[in-house]
Simulated assay, not measured.
Amino acid sequence: MPPRSDTSRDGSLADFAAENDEAPDTDPLCGDEAGYPGLVRTASKGASLRNFNLNLLPILEALLAEQNLSRAAQKLGMSQSAVSHALAKLRSQFQDPLFVRSRYGIEPTAKALRLRAPVASALGVIRREIVSPEHAGETAIGPRFQCGVTEPLDEGPALVSATMEALREISAETALTFRAVGGSDWKKMLRLRYLDIVFDAKPAPDSDLESEFVKDRHYNCYVRSDSAIAAADFTIDRYLKMSHVILDTPTADSRSTLRQALAARNGSRTIGARVHTHFHAALVASQSDHVGTGYREDIALYARNLPLRVLDCPVPAEPSPLFMTWLRTRTNETAHKRIRQRLTQLYRQEGLPEARDTRQAPPASR
């Protein structure tokens, strides 16, 4: 039976004749020499392309991108057994295991990581110059788009909703995941593609990563809508004396510019409640005498759905910058680039006019 020929998807480059051979009976990550099928040390056959199956390169690219056999198969439109068979052939061609088992799926070896850039470059030329223009440069997002935040306060509803909306415009079937990575080696997670984007307070200096400024965030405070406090009376002394609801962050070394400003004044807040989500902080403030502090974009969303009044934050804190960082080799991936551009546009649109005192005359008694 001749190999399939289907140019309707990017994975068509992966339809190779070996797909119709018998798949190996062994686990694709356990067996043969040193536990890797297809990896049989042989004398070099030379660098001739006649001895190299170029049709396997899209499979290698997908495995490097997804770090998971089933996700790579889904991305390519192939069966998992066919991808396993291709991996065995790749190991034979490159004389290297290429991938080893890890906690999250499979992890590339040093040689596989070295191959990532030249493989992406070679396939990029083919897609741009040979494949029809309507498919050139297209790269599937996959079943999940995973974002990391190094500061818990950054995982607010405005950023999450902007990212979700940007993702939906590209792929309605892709799930969005946000996770706190402040205590993790998130740069390695980007390199291994466990993460697609990381949001941090500063750009990454690493040569294989790329960062872009997204926005400066300003602070506002919020209290319940019928609070007796007036905007004119909301001084820093009054702020510090009030009971606060805050996010219960896992680490004490927060880079929040608000905390830095308070530390510079030797000021400390009285913590009345600690919660684990932004919404619960707003909910607690709407039903108590606690005051909450957060980014203006997030508070704008809280105030639309909860009985809250927004006030200027009296602490002279610098705006909190937000950068997003990604793997440099993904800079020109069509879908990834569109998501970055769109989420930046949407997040910059989110905002609240100047904080205002919309308080009516306070009730005579409570």
Rank of each mutant, 00 (worst) to 15 (best):
I339M: 08
A335R: 10
K337L: 13
I339L: 08
W326E: 03
H336E: 06
T334W: 13
Q349T: 15
L327N: 09
E318R: 14
T344V: 15
P316T: 02
P307K: 02
T325F: 05
M324Q: 15
I339W: 06
L327D: 13
L308Q: 00
L343F: 15
V315S: 00
Y302W: 12
R330L: 10
L308P: 00
L327Q: 11
L343Q: 13
Y302G: 03
R304W: 06
E333D: 15
R328L: 12
D312P: 14
V310R: 04
R304Q: 15
Y302H: 14
N332F: 13
E318V: 09
K337P: 01
W326S: 09
W326Q: 11
L308W: 00
R348G: 01
T331Y: 08
P314T: 05
I339K: 09
A303I: 03
S320T: 11
I339A: 05
P307R: 02
T334Y: 12
Y347D: 00
E333V: 04
E318Y: 03
V310A: 01
T331F: 04
K337H: 15
I339P: 08
T325E: 03
Y302D: 13
N305A: 12
R348M: 06
R328Q: 11
K337M: 13
T334Q: 14
N332H: 12
L343P: 02
N332W: 07
K337I: 02
I339S: 05
Q345Y: 12
R348L: 06
M324G: 07
P316R: 05
L306R: 03
A317G: 06
D312Q: 11
T344N: 11
Q341W: 07
R309F: 04
P314Q: 05
T344I: 15
A335W: 01
Q341P: 03
R348E: 10
T325R: 02
R304K: 14
L346P: 02
A303C: 08
L343N: 06
R328S: 11
R330A: 12
M324I: 04
E333K: 05
R309S: 08
Q345G: 10
Q349I: 14
T325K: 03
Y302P: 07
C313R: 01
L322M: 14
T329Q: 13
A303G: 05
P319Q: 02
V310D: 04
L308K: 00
N332T: 15
R309M: 08
P321S: 01
R348A: 05
L346V: 06
L308S: 00
R304N: 10
W326T: 09
H336A: 11
L327R: 11
T329G: 07
L343I: 07
C313P: 00
V310Q: 01
N305Q: 11
N332R: 13
A335P: 02
L306Y: 07
R330D: 14
Q345W: 10
P316L: 03
L311V: 01
K337W: 10
F323A: 04
R304L: 12
Q349C: 11
